[in-house]
Structure formats: structure tokens, C-alpha cells
Write a protein that binds this DNA or RNA. Sequence first.
DNA 1: GCTCATCGTTCAATATGTAGAATAGTATTC
DNA 2: GAATACTATTCTACATATTGAACGATGAGC
Lengths: 263, 263
Amino acid sequence: MSQIAPLEDAVRASKAPAIARAAAVLRLLGKRGTPMGVQAIARELNLVPSTCLYALRALVAEDLVAFDADTKRYALDAGVLTLARAWLRRDQFNDLAQPILDRVAREFGLTTLGVQIFGLDHIIVTAMSQSGQNFQLSTQVGSRFPALVSATGRCIAAFGGYELADLKPRFETLRWDEAPFWDDWCAQVAEARANEVAVDAGHYISGVTVVAAPVWKSGREAGRGPSHALVAIGIGGAPRSELPRLKEALAAAARSLSEQLAG
Amino acid sequence: MSQIAPLEDAVRASKAPAIARAAAVLRLLGKRGTPMGVQAIARELNLVPSTCLYALRALVAEDLVAFDADTKRYALDAGVLTLARAWLRRDQFNDLAQPILDRVAREFGLTTLGVQIFGLDHIIVTAMSQSGQNFQLSTQVGSRFPALVSATGRCIAAFGGYELADLKPRFETLRWDEAPFWDDWCAQVAEARANEVAVDAGHYISGVTVVAAPVWKSGREAGRGPSHALVAIGIGGAPRSELPRLKEALAAAARSLSEQLAG
DNA sequence: GCTCATCGTTCAATATGTAGAATAGTATTC
DNA sequence: GAATACTATTCTACATATTGAACGATGAGC
């Protein structure tokens, strides 16, 4: 559903391809931000223009997409907000993670995130806490990142139950500021597995240290991978001396959160 | 698409009925909050179970719906967040309205909202500012309300270019704490048209005064109705003495906002 | 002012998503 | 523990959503 041959597979596999198309349109409009015409959307997503038009009309009828009759351009509309708000209000992980994220952010003076893991595809930031004293990092609730990148990626690789060798093709498509060598990365994954914390020291974004600890939503049996993770982001060398303490704090927070969620 | 014969019309009219179904499922899951099974969803929306199942699977593949394999229950998933975030970042009205809402909320010590108007169907809250000193009103960004209700409803009726008589059937389906008489309501609509501000004095929610002023996004020509509105909410008699000043402030803010958006 | 290019939109044939019954699985009841 | 009453799911004929070409509208370039 992502990366190389994206939409067409999802469309073909599903019994409701219109929905896959609709979701793709919504995501495209979200990514672009600027309003787009029918043809531009169709071209970008490899859709037939007429089909694309019908999809857009259906989305407009649902208030998920706004249509400017003058310019004939389409853009996201406020309907998506309603859904997001409903989700935010009921997500257990988010409710329980927020105070923890706030505490860690305050104690260490950095930015913390709660993320949800979607297999090997990607992760989504669902909660955030800023300490306020450092720069505003350009991450936002709702942002998507590739699954295997940065510190969270090492957690996913470590606990997802995958063969490391199988991950190599995916690993090689990732974009880092300073990509780690495969062997080094494997070693870091092993370390993450041992400590239940992973660190990315300036690889993903140079000059930025990222720490992540895995969280399991519904028990840890069956060797299923973690569903979420707690993440801490520090700029520059600032967290360096505190790093051991931060790792321990984040790992402990993640463990206690997993227990709370298990019930 | 709302009220009485809801889904089936939208499905039949559209050339992409699967999308209408998908949106309905998402909204239902959002409203319920608690995870639901296939049949429960299908029954609620008058869908064929198998069709509903296919829709759900497609939504799961897009990360818009989460599927718990153990309980076979479906719920909203974090994917909706990504879309909402993208929308929030680019909406002009929201960016420009927020500081205005903050200012008014602070100055008058009440809660202010920015809402987007969807014809006669409904409005959606897209921005909010709380003064902090009063009770937290149970409104949230993303909430939907019927279009014609409360103070915003009077604005819509006043400036939407509708015949008042045509609105009567809709008016009568609304639910108020203390429903106004039709004649009184018409008079208040006329007053709103004259002053470019509307007031709901405890009708929609008893004990709560609501003030609303219309905003036009893309010029005010052609007699098209307002696209948005600024709303102020005061609890109890508190704002009573300040009311004239508040009305003027909100109307002025709405006018200046309309001008900014016109460019 | 005309041409050309590109846009949004409509239309009819057909590939295909959908409806409804049949199946298989699971909890609940007696 | 068998039977009941639900579930979720698969399957297939048919209605229909999708396609790709034709249409009309719009704007750029000369």
C-alpha cells in the first residue's frame, strides 16, 4: 500500500476498490495541501479521470473534500476533523501515554512522542509533548514515517518477529541523513532487543538523538510485535550525558504503560 | 445525507457508492467510540453484511479502521489523524481565525469557536479558544451540529439566501432546550440580517448565551451564504451586561476576517 | 481572432463490485 | 452436552461502477 507499486495492488486486491481510491485521494490532497484539479489528481494516482471525478464527487458529498466551483479545484475539508476528534477521544494508548510523555519531556527538557506502529509499513505520531525550552521540532500529531527508520525502526525490527535478512530490501529503500551500514544496524537492533530501548544517534536526522521504547497494547504473548512506542527526541549533544538515564526512564515508562494496557 | 432517509439516497445517487458507505461506517464508528462487529454496523446503517465486511476490510487496509482479530471488532484507527492534521495545517480560515478567537475569548472571559458551514446540513467546529476562567464547555474541535440551530443557525438563515418559509420543515426537526416559536425565530433572523450578528439567549442550551457572526471566505458577491462563522459562548447571565459590546466586537472581527479571506 | 492544448465532464459497453443465500464458526441457553 | 441463536465469512449471478473515448469549455500562444 506504500512505496513502489502502491495503489493498484490495493485496488485489485480489495472487494471495494473505490475505498482504496478514496483514501489515496484524501492522502494525496493532504500531502499536497494546495488544491488540485481532477486531472492532476488522476495523473498522480494513475487513475482514470472519470473514475477520479466520481470519487471526488462522492467525497465532496461526505464533506471530506471541498470543491471550489470557480477554480474547479479540490482540497481536504473539515469532515476529516470530525473523525480524528472522535478517534482521539477514545484511544486508550493516547490517554495513558500523554501524562507519561509530559513527565519525561519536562524532566529531561526535550520533545517526546507517542507513536502507533502499522506493521512494517509506517508509524503515525498520535501524541506529543514539548518541553518548550528547546526548538520546536517539525513533527506533528498525525505525521507518518516509514516504519524501519530511526530509533522506532530498530524497536520494530527487534520485536516484530521478523527475520533480519527479510528486512534488508526494505532497509535499503529508507532515507536517512547519514544511513547506517547494514551490519551496524543489525547490531543496534540486537542491542535494542536486549535492552528494550533503541537509540538513533544522528543517523535519521543528523545532530538529533532519538530514543524509542516499545509498547504492547494487548499483552505480549504470541510474539506479536509492539503496537506502539514511546519516543524521545533531543537536539544536538544536549542529551548525551543524560542518555543512560533517559534510556532507562523511557524503557521503564514503556513497560508500565504496556502493563496498564494489557488489562 | 443526514436526518431521515440518510445513507440510501447518497448511495444511490453517487457513482461511487462504496465511498458513501465507507464514510458512513467511519462516522458511525466515530460516534459510537466503542468497537463494533460487522453485523452491528451493517444493521445500524442498513447495509448488507457482506458488503459491510468488504468496506471494513478496505478501510482496515488503509489504516482508517483498526481490526481486533481476537474480538472481531472494528474501531477507528489513527489514519484519520493524518488527514486531519494535514487539513488543519492548510486551512486559511483556521489560521487567521485563531488569534482573533484568542483575543475575544481573553477580553470577554468566555469560550469562542470558529465553525465552518455546510449549507443547511450542519456546521463543524474547526477552531476553539477557552478563556480558562469559566467551566469547560463540552464542545470540541471537530464537533458537528445541525445548521439551523442556535445563533449560527440564525446567521445561516439570514444570509444563506433561502426563503424563510422553505426552512420551516427543517426548523421543526431541530432539538432545543427551549425551542423558540417560529415567529419569534423569524424576527431574530431578520435582526441578525440587519446587524450581522445573531444571538441565542438560552434557547439552544438553557442558561447559555451564544453569539455568532457570519464570515465569507471568498468574497461576498453572488448572494452566496457565509462559509464560516465566529461564535462566542457565555455561561449564565455573565455576558448579559457586556452583550452589546460583545456583539459589536464579534461582528467587527467577522467583517475584518472576511476581508482578509477575500484576497 | 484563430489554433492548439488541456481542462472538466458525459456517455455507452463491459468488466466487476454487490446482494443474498449458503456455510462455517462461536457463544449462549436449557 | 446438545441445541439454539447468534456471529463472521465465502460464494455466485446479476446489477452496476468503471473504463476510455468523445464532448464541450476554457485559456495560452501566436
